[in-house]
Design a protein around this nucleic acid. Structure first.
Lengths: 191, 191
DNA sequence: TTCGTTATGTACTTGTAAGTACAGAATTGA
DNA sequence: TCAATTCTGTACTTACAAGTACATAACGAA
């Protein structure tokens, strides 16, 4: 037929993710992505569209990755409390120390005023909604574990808030013990 | 002596804050600030230095404003629990609805990878440290209100996390009732 | 091998934003 | 009124990044 692509789009999205994550959308130039990936601009444009479209693909991929992991973790057997604790605990490496310094790509994007594009907002909203649904479903299913008057809907949202807060403060590189202590304390709400 | 300044620097910082808050540091051009303020670039440069320096002044001013309010609120007489609830409740207008859509300038800046300048980071760190100190001091002072085994240090940090999370998720314009419900639930940790 | 097709790389255009040179305006002190 | 000084506005330079034109390379099919 014709000349085949010389690169795997997924590899490029992975590299682009790293650059966007480190520097943010605005401050990342396509030249940096071409430098990091070795792919020239016309190929990037042909494969992904313009910078906005490329970023959106990166962000969607990022969301899908986290959602997949959340689905697996929150579906595990045993007490719902432990599933949720394990889900939160899984974020500790991304909320503390060196690795936490860039926080979460989704939250970084949500707080970036320059990304007011409707599609980015929609992607983030869908992601947050889906995550909260997973939490809520598990809390509802296992509500017998919890005290009387326990409200799974509000609790799911509170956990989302804590999760967002940990990742927002991750840029300060807190100690992982401190993050763990917060999680432990918040787990007290699941009494 | 010489020709006096034709504008009040504080007014300009206030206008610059609005623009930076809405669009973020990178995406804000000085031309937009000159348009919004009516002050030409050379005057801005003479008064504030370059774009980074201007932003830093804006951010410091923002931090000072919130810290001043926090000091007043958290120093009020009565139960510490109520002081803290009032402090958190005061953020509701900035965490919900239309007004919440731009979140918090400090958190937006903390999550902006392009703002890796050491001074911005330091300003944010100082702000967070000071805020947490205020909470911790009040929780320690009133620890008699709380249950046995209550840990004011961890609790202060948890409240910081919740506060950050509410302001990070503010960009989704949640309903103020939902924000209030989260605050109520978290106040349960101060039992 | 040759043709049609699609990818690639170089080098360009274009737009925009940061920062500044300079001439002239506004003020106070003499 | 003049002089010294500092501010202001216009218009510029410079840098950089987004996006693209175009010639060429690499493939499969016939």
């Amino acid at each position: 037929m014709a000349r085949p692509r010389s690169f795997d789009p997924d590899d490029v999205l992975e590299i682009a993710r790293q650059v966007f994550w480190r520097k943010g959308f605005q401050a990342t130039s396509l030249d940096e992505i071409t430098a990091a990936s070795g792919i020239a601009k016309p190929s990037l444009y042909a494969a992904f569209g313009d910078k906005n479209a490329l970023f959106l693909k990166v962000l969607d991929r990022y969301h899908d990755g986290i959602l997949g992991w959340a689905e697996r973790t929150l579906a595990q057997p045993g007490p719902g409390r432990e599933a949720i604790r394990q889900w939160l605990t899984g974020f500790i490496p991304y909320c503390s120390g060196e690795r936490g310094q860039h926080g979460c790509l989704s939250i970084n994007s949500a707080t970036d005023g320059s990304l007011d594009q409707a599609e980015v907002r929609k992607s983030i909203e869908r992601y947050n909604r889906r995550l909260e649904e997973l939490l809520r479903a598990r809390l509802r299913a296992d509500r017998a574990e919890f005290r009387k008057g326990f409200d799974p809907d509000i609790t799911a949202h509170t956990i989302m808030v804590v999760h967002a807060g940990l990742l927002a403060l991750a840029h300060q590189r807190p100690d992982s013990k401190q993050v763990k202590a917060v999680i432990d304390q918040v787990m007290g709400l699941l009494a």
